[in-house]
Design a protein around this nucleic acid. Sequence first.
DNA 1: CATGAATGAGGTTTCATTCAT
DNA 2: TATGAATGAAACCTCATTCAT
Lengths: 221, 221, 221, 221
Amino acid sequence: MNEQQWIKELLKVNGEDVKLSEKQIKILEAAIEIFAEKGYASTSTSEIAKRAGVAEGTIFRHYKTKKDLLLAIVNPTLIKSVAPFLAKEFVKEVFENEYQHFEDFIRVLLKNRYDFVKKYLPAIRVFWQEIAFLPEIKEQLQFIFTKHVYEKFKKIIEHFQKKGEIVMIPPESAIRMIITTIIGFFITRFIVLPHHNWDDETEKAEIERTIQFLMHGLLKK
Amino acid sequence: MNEQQWIKELLKVNGEDVKLSEKQIKILEAAIEIFAEKGYASTSTSEIAKRAGVAEGTIFRHYKTKKDLLLAIVNPTLIKSVAPFLAKEFVKEVFENEYQHFEDFIRVLLKNRYDFVKKYLPAIRVFWQEIAFLPEIKEQLQFIFTKHVYEKFKKIIEHFQKKGEIVMIPPESAIRMIITTIIGFFITRFIVLPHHNWDDETEKAEIERTIQFLMHGLLKK
Amino acid sequence: MNEQQWIKELLKVNGEDVKLSEKQIKILEAAIEIFAEKGYASTSTSEIAKRAGVAEGTIFRHYKTKKDLLLAIVNPTLIKSVAPFLAKEFVKEVFENEYQHFEDFIRVLLKNRYDFVKKYLPAIRVFWQEIAFLPEIKEQLQFIFTKHVYEKFKKIIEHFQKKGEIVMIPPESAIRMIITTIIGFFITRFIVLPHHNWDDETEKAEIERTIQFLMHGLLKK
Amino acid sequence: MNEQQWIKELLKVNGEDVKLSEKQIKILEAAIEIFAEKGYASTSTSEIAKRAGVAEGTIFRHYKTKKDLLLAIVNPTLIKSVAPFLAKEFVKEVFENEYQHFEDFIRVLLKNRYDFVKKYLPAIRVFWQEIAFLPEIKEQLQFIFTKHVYEKFKKIIEHFQKKGEIVMIPPESAIRMIITTIIGFFITRFIVLPHHNWDDETEKAEIERTIQFLMHGLLKK
DNA sequence: CATGAATGAGGTTTCATTCAT
DNA sequence: TATGAATGAAACCTCATTCAT
């Protein structure tokens, strides 16, 4: 039951708990696991039912279709993926006190998203594997990105460009490099080489290197 | 017929033409298209046959199973993806004359892989979408990467570290950052924002910025 | 509640009220409605429960199976359909005083069955739609028809044939023509053209024409 | 094979043969049989496949859905049901030479529709059982009836009313009585009492009585 | 070589019915 | 008594693969 805690938290909307029966959690858990392993289209509902320990009909009592089950995983993951940028006070916090230097901001952002990825990894795998085939979700992601993430990110970039901390390139280029570098690290860390010897030391060092790479790459010369 | 030229080239082994009947090319073309759109598992052989303008049976005359058809796309793409590193003379060329500075190397590498991605984009999409569910191919990729790409890349990195051009971090970290940055650019360019206004000017500028980002990120300070 | 009165009356046995809980009536009401619309086999118990505003389990508390629910509608409808002929005094009434002429009998019969059809239309629809697939009920109907309706009807026909009012054809033929003509009118009136402009005037006229048609059709020439 | 001839004829469009594979005919044959017995909704495709001696998948190769299979039966039956009235020369034939008296017309009509019902009885059963649940077909029937049958029938009625052969009632009433009487006979003959002793003699006599009933019922007094 | 009808295993989904609350 | 979550059998339908032509 304890291991399923993360699923409940993933599904939380606006910090409010969503009611999930025991069986519903087992279904989600099984679905995320198998979707991540073999992909949505190659996973049969009977397999999900078996792994979840419920009757196949029970899945359809909770999720009208197999696709609805996928969306029940993918939608919250989308929201939580860009969560920091959805907070109203986010930009203000960056400017007002908390982040004297651009590096502070990057460091906190990376740490925060790192924790997120580590916690929800299986759901995130499903999300990125399936998004290519979910045009509605892709559009929603684009919308949220453009409206919330990009706008706020841009302000922050411009702020530190004016402060003379980072190089004068188009903000969208800087944003791309930051995101690319961070996600690149996560993919290496969790997908490509998850079994590599990632002890605390090694990991901290690699994170530090990644931050230094980013900082120097963007530094005002 | 001319448009199908790239498929013939993708399938070339060691520079030798592979014999492909008219129908076979049409099948590959259709399969790549639809696999890229909807994913391998969600594509039916009847749909491929229809788009290719052949009978369903004809597909199975050329490829014993549906999976064989996928592998006929994925395997050559794997080889071509890491092709530069497979050439015997590659490292020698880097050291001996051609690349005086690390930047030259990066610049040529990026240009070369850019041309590759642009030419074979649909097949590459299929490759990256499906590799997660193809353990044999994944292993093969890891094997080739470790044996050919990583080894040679490492030598090059160490060479320029010794020359004092790039920072003294573990070569695998440097390699990761380079690959991550390059692939990140390609994904943005061809997958995330393919419809963005990528005229020659814009593109050159963004490529230049990416190279500068990489160079400064890795420069010896 | 008032609208459900007709259901209570339909279910009355020998003039005695049957005990029906509030929920039971709602279930019957919903079932009749939906069975009439889409047919028994295409109606799900969950849909009935929803329309009745009760839980699915509640249906099965009152009716052991879905078929029992159908029979609870169909059986009383069967009895009420042939009710006049089941009354013991029926033939006597026809002979002794009330109906001097055959036309009087027909007129009263038609009026009486017209009121019946108008009152119980939805249940009657269900009855006629499903009887083809309910062999037990079909047999029961045949039994009742042969034993009660046909026997009594025959006596009446022969009575008026002897009186010289109607043509000397086999009574079963006459009975068929009468029933066919009456039911034909009802089907036109209530099923085929229910939305036709059936004001009192039009309706009375059409009924009169139907009676005249029947009378002249059967008249002794 | 010979017994299936009638199915091919039922499906003929404008007198042209429709191509039907051996298996397709077996499927239609089985479907009509079982639909007639238990109704469309209570019939499973697996049962049809079994009775037809084909794999279940074969049904869906020929008919995209179970409903399409139903429509492949119901649509031709609709057309053939009103076929005589769809012939262009029909009204002309009635007026010009062939039918001196209204009785001749009725006699030919009844004979013609009798042959039709006898030949296609199972398909007709399916048609009338299911039409209540097929709004599109119901509308089409109404359209064809209004546009072709009713219009032509009306002209004929008015013609014989002017000739003084039949009573001056609204044509639609006369049409209703004729159709009702004829269909009523068919239902008795083929559905209600199909096992009654219908030897040639009996049948001819009953047909004659039905015609006399109709004629006297509508005769100008 | 190419075809496409046929197959049947297996996929998703529905639904009457049960039963713990 | 009423509920509604859970069941699992069976429904409709898809699809990779085979094979006679």
